[in-house]
Design a protein around this nucleic acid. Sequence first.
DNA 1: ATGATAATGATAATCACTATCATGATAGCA
DNA 2: TGCTATCATGATAGTGATTATCATTATCAT
Lengths: 146, 146
Amino acid sequence: MRFTANRIAGILREHGHKLTPQRHAILRVMAATHDHLTPEAIHEKARSSKPEIGLITVYRTLSLLSDLKLVCRVHAPNGCRGYMMRRPAEHHHHVVCSGCDRVVDFRGCHLADLEQEVLEETGFDINGHLLEFYGLCPDCSAAAPA
Amino acid sequence: MRFTANRIAGILREHGHKLTPQRHAILRVMAATHDHLTPEAIHEKARSSKPEIGLITVYRTLSLLSDLKLVCRVHAPNGCRGYMMRRPAEHHHHVVCSGCDRVVDFRGCHLADLEQEVLEETGFDINGHLLEFYGLCPDCSAAAPA
DNA sequence: ATGATAATGATAATCACTATCATGATAGCA
DNA sequence: TGCTATCATGATAGTGATTATCATTATCAT
């Protein structure tokens, strides 16, 4: 289950951040979209519920949410400007469609063994990872020529 | 084994690209460095063998090498401006040090099973992936407080 | 050697993102 | 509910990386 906008609003307050209409608008956009969104796209969508909101505020809010680990970046091959809501306690990763740029999460990720191997090969004290798969989503796959 | 600058020069020619001294200088820099390098860093190093080279040319050459899959981007948590040489037939991934930004390759990566699971969960026709581990390299690990 | 073609570099433009700062809004508290 | 310290916002302008344009120059097949 992913966070709701209201749930996150509470988390913001717990951390001593004020809950402004702008932030709430952004949260609603993020929570309502399963896909990754660029700052501009978020701004665009947020304007429909809060027309005066500035792009700057979107950047600031994303930075805040990112610090609180409520939102995470998506690294697509053609750029790294996407953000999407983070599943809370759950480890997750992305599958990015090369056709339509759609991003989908997946849950299972059993990298503990691999992490151990990498530790042995490189000596690094590993504390995190980024794993993304690329391919064609079912729709684009069906539309693509055989 | 990684490509040598000369080997890549041949590949460039095979694809109908001209081999200029600038490109050769950039290739030598890339081949000589195991680490990831930003466009500026590459420019800086290339200037020692070809002082008149412009940063623009570095960008263009990186873009070309990237199209030919001879070079790949490194996605670090704090930005995505790094490039490094690609091991040819060999599947490889990066371990990025959060302390000193050093990047090391590792070889073993057994994601076939996981790829299958992801296919089942998402229906995506997967054709590639990005996997990077983050942590502290042995040096930074030793320097860090316990 | 020559010429078609592609690459370079200078300049300026664009694009994403950030710093600054005065104004306005929020939330804790009486 | 009203007051006030503090935080957030938005306008403006600024930064820094990357890209477009275009005249000049270099490469390579002939």
